[in-house]
């Protein structure tokens, strides 16, 4: 690997990591504002203009809180838990094409950190590793409530991963590739996958909510039943890591949804733009507009729907979403075969 490529990739990794963290930070602010607006309130507006410095104040509060490690806990694993949650959340961004290419100072920057030819499998792999962060944290706390929370979280995430994987298979069969770059490139203009896979999109989106432990599937966190959830024993920035990882996951999920079903960086009438430099920037902006929209939808749903009961959650996952996803997959397979044979 030559040095220029290495430097380019390092810069891209750091930039995307920075953007990810920044968006996750301001998602916490957006969440509070959206919640407030949906409930006819104003939301935080004291720290800075419109309360824009609120996330910094929250982070400062988190840092200055007392850090407790329970005496009965498995100390090493207790520290590992939030680290794994954060690590898996940050890793997934590498395979997502954030645009085609950007032209900065006469230099062409490829906007995908790693064009892995099995990109979507890589993301699914890391997402399913995220369950370890929660499970290890809940287990190492040596507290029955956090263990209950962790068991809830892991059984929920494992159940919904099945339907999620099945709905992705349909997309993969349609595009004939596991590479996210290829999948995004095939949806140029308005040729988005969601027009062909509406059911798959609904299933994927529902599973994404469950994977991120977002309402209405936020059962791992529950004050009345579990005091808090898998992070009962956590305080200070370790707790901050868990909460922050949730927001990063939300960002990444929105990016994956946008890439798989809503054309990624593509936008309508993009063929009419002749300048490649302008096109690159517009594609970058288009992708982020889609991502922000989905983050808003995540929050919108959270403040609209009441949560499921646990048996309803399992019922929905195993008895509704998985059969539907299999049906969707079979129909897609039949249509793909029929098309390839010239019907």
């Amino acid at each position: 690997m030559d040095q220029a490529l290495l430097i380019e990739k390092i810069i891209l990794v750091l930039t995307m990591l920075g953007i990810t963290l920044l968006i996750a930070t301001y998602s916490t602010y957006a969440e509070r504002k959206v919640a407030a607006f949906l409930q006819d309130r104003l939301g935080p507006d004291r720290a800075g203009p419109f309360g824009l410095l609120q996330p910094l104040a929250d982070a400062g509060k988190m840092f200055f809180k007392e850090e407790l490690i329970p005496a009965a806990s498995e100390k090493w694993l207790f520290i590992m838990g939030p680290g794994i949650a954060m690590f898996t959340a940050c890793m997934t961004g590498a395979a997502i094409p954030w645009g085609t290419e950007l032209h900065i100072f006469g230099y062409t920057l490829n906007m995908q950190i790693a064009d892995i030819d099995i990109g979507i499998l890589y993301i699914i792999g890391f997402v399913s590793m995220g369950v370890y962060g929660i499970m290890i944290g809940g287990w190492a706390s040596n507290n029955k409530y956090s263990l209950y929370g962790a068991i809830r979280a892991s059984s929920q995430m494992i159940s919904y991963e099945l339907a999620m994987g099945l709905s992705i298979i349909a997309v993969v069969m349609m595009s004939g590739s596991l590479s996210l770059k290829e999948i995004a490139a095939q949806q140029s203009g308005m040729n988005w996958n969601v027009w062909y896979q509406p059911l798959g999109f609904v299933i994927f989106f529902t599973c994404a909510l469950a994977e991120c432990n977002r309402a209405p599937f936020d059962l791992p966190e529950c004050e009345t039943e579990l005091i808090g959830g898998y992070h009962v024993e956590y305080s200070s920035m370790k707790l901050g890591f868990y909460l922050f990882a949730e927001y990063i996951n939300m960002f990444i999920s929105s990016a994956v949804i946008a890439t798989l079903y809503f054309g990624g960086y593509n936008f309508p009438f993009q063929d009419m733009i002749s300048s490649p430099a302008l096109l690159g920037w517009l594609q970058f902006i288009a992708l982020f507009a889609k991502i922000f929209f989905f983050i808003f939808v995540f929050m919108w749903i959270r403040w609209t729907l009441p949560r499921f009961r646990y048996d309803q959650l399992m019922h929905l996952g195993w008895k509704s979403l998985i059969p539907l996803a299999i049906l969707n997959m079979v129909i897609t397979a039949a249509v793909v075969i029929a098309r390839n044979n010239g019907f």
């Binding site: 607006f37 949906l38 409930q39 749903i301 609209t304 729907l305």
Partner: peptide, 9 residues
């Protein structure tokens, strides 16, 4: 339901 909450937004 989402329509209702969006109206409140």
């Amino acid at each position: 339901g989402m329509g209702v909450t969006l109206k409140h937004f």
